[in-house]
Design a protein around this nucleic acid. Structure first.
Length: 204
DNA sequence: AACATCACCAACCGCCCGGAC
DNA sequence: AGTCCGGGCGGTTGGTGATGT
């Protein structure tokens, strides 16, 4: 007995928006604003779409001043810092990045930054095992979040090389897992001397 | 060239919260 | 005070182009 859906299934179009639909929505919102409710908007505008779908399309794509394209290193840094601070509160994070949407930030994190963070962690561990030079990295009490927080993104490329060069033997790469459905989060972490729950809680 | 796999991103789903009644 | 409804949000999925075999 869930709540009623916001629109009748079967009577609304789903899937990618056509240029025509975009034009109708854009024109309507620019002329009338979001007068009333999003639920009522598609009927008024003559769109066979769910109100929520219209809202999402407007906010993520049609709204003025939306920034598309590559994220800058500076933006990456902001996302890293805010993620460490707030976790996956994408709207909060996106609000600090003018022109970026929560969906954009979320996708960017899931496809790029999560992997970067993972590599950074592995690289930090590799360095500690090979060189045993950083007292920060020696004990179980080590706060790796600190390390990650204070490592510039620009260092990651170098650390990536370290990982590739040394081929950490205790790490088994996940199978062909792609995107957010990869298998890292479900597998036993790399049999190292740090508690699995600690590592997982930091990385995923 | 054909097929398989990967990576990315737009869009959907469903839950939660707050305002209106 | 309780219920309803819409907006907002985060998680997830499906489609598609790129890359590898």
């Amino acid at each position: 007995m869930g709540r009623a859906p916001c629109c009748e299934k079967g009577k609304v179009k789903k899937g990618p928006w056509s240029p025509d639909e975009d034009a109708i929505l854009k024109s309507y919102v620019e002329t009338h604003g979001i007068a009333g409710t999003w639920i009522a908007l598609p009927t008024k505008a003559g769109l066979k779409r769910c109100g929520k779908s219209c809202r999402l399309r407007w906010l993520n794509y049609l709204r003025p001043n939306i920034k598309h394209g590559e994220f800058t290193e500076e933006e990456d840094n902001v996302i890293f810092n805010l993620f460490n601070q707030y976790g996956s509160r994408w709207s909060t994070i996106a609000s600090q990045l003018p022109g970026r949407t929560d969906n954009d930030v979320k996708n960017h994190w899931n496809t790029k930054l999560k992997k970067k963070k993972k590599k950074l962690f592995l690289a930090a561990k590799t360095q500690s095992h090979l060189h045993s030079q950083s007292p920060l990295l020696h004990t179980q009490e080590t706060d790796f979040t600190e390390i990650i927080n204070h490592t510039p993104i620009s260092c990651i490329a170098a650390l990536d090389n370290s990982v590739d060069q040394f081929q950490i033997p205790t790490v088994s790469e996940p199978g062909a897992g792609s995107d957010s459905r990869d298998q890292w989060s479900s597998m036993e972490p790399w049999g190292c001397d740090f508690p699995a729950d600690m590592i997982c809680s930091m990385l995923f």
